[in-house]
């Protein structure tokens, strides 16, 4: 049972709590999005690009680093949001009892959970902004439409944050997050058109890739950063929106079942 009537703008106060905590450690948190793209572009641009040469994508030829860059942002969005609502939310819920304390105040469970998801999306969007800056320095982003990456990162962040919180609602122990990471995150990272176009996959594997939310985020980020895409953009936005809504509902449902006894 989800109590929609208990959901209000008050969730912003929980978001603020995460923001205040984050400010204490933001310098460390921003190192990853700052240097990760540099490492990837260096490894793939210098080492790997020699093997592949140019990539044909959406009817055009791109250098491998240019092809890869938007996908790096999409993958970072996934990781930031998913790890925030799995490991970090689980620590807040189970070890720090943060939610128990909040539930003695005029906040509802629905507000706390929505705030967790929105926070994870904000963090993902902040990481995307930094990566966008770094990758632009390498000349790998087409401005100004590359700015579309930011709202896309937020939407993708909601989707991956929601699915992460859903796993937090059902997982018995923190060690077991290995399972959704191995079965869900890693295959998505590899097969969502991140490192090679999905059009290169054999016919039977394509529907699988198309069902991955990361695929749609990667494609949308490419549209923003490269000006090319292999999907129908509105369909991809629709898919991510439905995915986000569905898993937000499931997260609220299972977190209520888990916390309210």
């Amino acid at each position: 049972m989800i109590r929609w009537d208990a959901l209000s703008w008050r969730f912003i106060r929980v978001w603020r709590r995460n923001f205040v905590t984050f400010r204490r450690i933001w310098k460390v948190n921003f190192l990853t999005p700052l240097f990760e793209p540099v490492l990837f572009i260096a490894a793939f641009g210098l080492g790997f690009a020699g093997l592949v040469g140019e990539v044909r994508y959406g009817g055009e030829a791109f250098s491998y680093p240019a092809f890869l860059a938007p996908a790096l942002i999409a993958a970072a969005v996934m990781n930031n949001a998913f790890f925030e609502t799995t490991y970090a939310s689980f620590v807040r819920m189970y070890y720090q009892k943060t939610f128990d304390a909040m539930l003695a105040t005029p906040l509802s469970l629905e507000e706390i959970m929505v705030a967790e998801i929105v926070w994870s999306a904000s963090k993902a969007a902040a990481a995307a902004a930094i990566m966008l800056g770094v990758l632009s320095l390498f000349g790998l982003m087409a401005w100004p439409q590359a700015l579309w990456v930011l709202p896309l990162a937020f939407l993708g962040g909601i989707a991956f944050g929601a699915v992460g919180l859903f796993f937090t609602g059902i997982i018995p122990t923190i060690e077991m997050f290995n399972l959704p990471i191995f079965l869900f995150i890693t295959p998505m990272f590899l097969f969502s058109g991140t490192f090679f176009p999905v059009s290169n996959l054999p016919l039977w594997a394509k529907p699988l890739a198309l069902s991955f939310p990361l695929y749609h985020l990667v494609e949308l980020c490419r549209l923003a950063g490269l000006g090319r895409s292999e999907t129908v953009p509105l369909l991809s936005v629709g898919y991510l929106t439905v995915f986000a809504a569905l898993f937000t509902m499931l997260a609220l449902l299972f977190m209520r079942r888990r916390l309210i006894r």
Binding site: R13, R17, T21, I25, Q96, T98, A101, M102
Partner: peptide, 19 residues
């Protein structure tokens, strides 16, 4: 149920925010 990442004072300020 205190916030271990925050200071003593911040714990009170953040909690006041919930109200």
């Amino acid at each position: 149920t205190l916030d271990p990442d925050l200071t003593v004072e911040e714990n009170l300020l953040v909690f006041a925010g919930y109200f």
